[in-house]
Simulated assay, not measured.
Amino acid sequence: MPEVLEQRLLDDRLVLQLLPAAAYSARDPVQWQTLGVTLERQRGVHAIDSDRREDFDTWPGTLALTPAGIEVFSESAQGGEYLLLRWQGATPLIAGQQRRQSPGHASALALGREARRLLLAQDRDQLALEHCALEFLGLVQGERATPSPAAKLAPVLQRMADEYSLPLSLAQLALTYGHNELRLLRDFRRAVGITPHAWLTEVRVQAARRLLERTDLPLAAIAQDCGFAHQSHLGSALRQATGLTPRQYRLRFATRAADFTL
């Protein structure tokens, strides 16, 4: 199975985890306060502080805050990459007794992607990770649960997930949405926290990462299969997202390949 990348910080009071895009069934310990941001869409079932299970469909850029004392059970057949921060200090950081979610959280998504880059690095920078984690903790202040605007964008996001290898245009995506390009840009930022172009690049990078991990395809073929204009475009996008070149990424994570059936 793909590994969970973890870093303990601040004398083990804080644990930063990058959870892979893989099937899972997990129950969070109730004594931990947690902050999490979805880096990829996640679909499955969960139970929040009860035995009642409900379907969930969480889009990227959703910040979730869970106070101590709330039990969260969740399972998914395919998962989705997720950045999780567990606070084990005595000082409560998340007020109230309810789990809260804020979709389209640009700051949380940016910090989640930066934490991912730092956790994937060959030589982890402890100080940079602590700084990033503390900024992530700072998002707790003033956050309130908000309804997700992503439901009406589901056809657009699904098209990007299905057709990332194609040269999709904003006009095509706006047609799928049923509104003009300006409306799409505004609503997409609200739902995900970044532009459609930035998200499409993220989807392509995630697809390339999995091909690098699980196959021996040449880099040029991976670039083409994932919608990049050429191999150097793939390299630039992957370095920005992970801090590693395609060859470095493959050397570090290709050992996972034996865990997958292609």
Rank of each mutant, 00 (worst) to 15 (best):
E6M: 11
L168P: 03
G61T: 08
E40M: 10
L85Q: 07
W87Q: 02
A154R: 14
F56D: 00
L262H: 10
D216F: 14
V4S: 02
A77Q: 14
A221V: 13
A208C: 08
D162A: 12
L219Y: 05
E181C: 08
A174K: 09
L83I: 15
Y82N: 01
G36T: 10
V205P: 04
L119Q: 09
T66S: 07
Y24M: 07
A23L: 06
R186T: 13
Q172K: 03
R116S: 11
Y164T: 03
L111K: 11
Q206E: 13
S76I: 05
A220Q: 13
T201P: 00
A64H: 01
Q206K: 14
G193N: 06
T201N: 11
D125N: 15
I222W: 10
L119Y: 11
D216L: 13
A23C: 06
R159Y: 00
D28P: 00
D28K: 04
H230T: 01
P218F: 12
A223H: 06
E181H: 11
Y249P: 02
P155I: 04
P149T: 03
Q97L: 06
T201S: 12
Q224N: 03
L184C: 09
S25E: 13
L85C: 12
R99Y: 03
V30F: 00
E3D: 11
D259C: 07
H233M: 04
L234D: 03
V72L: 14
T66W: 00
R100L: 11
G44P: 04
R53Q: 15
L238P: 02
L185H: 13
E114W: 12
R117Y: 05
E213K: 14
S74E: 10
P2S: 13
A258I: 10
H105I: 00
A108E: 06
Q248Y: 00
L85E: 10
R209K: 15
L65D: 02
A237H: 06
L109W: 13
L185G: 02
E40G: 01
T62F: 05
V203R: 14
A47Q: 08
L238M: 13
H179P: 00
A223D: 06
T91V: 12
F73K: 07
R189N: 11
L170F: 10
R116K: 15
G104C: 04
L129H: 11
H131R: 14
Y82L: 14
G44K: 07
P60W: 08
P67K: 07
M1A: 15
F136S: 00
C226P: 02
L120R: 14
T215Q: 08
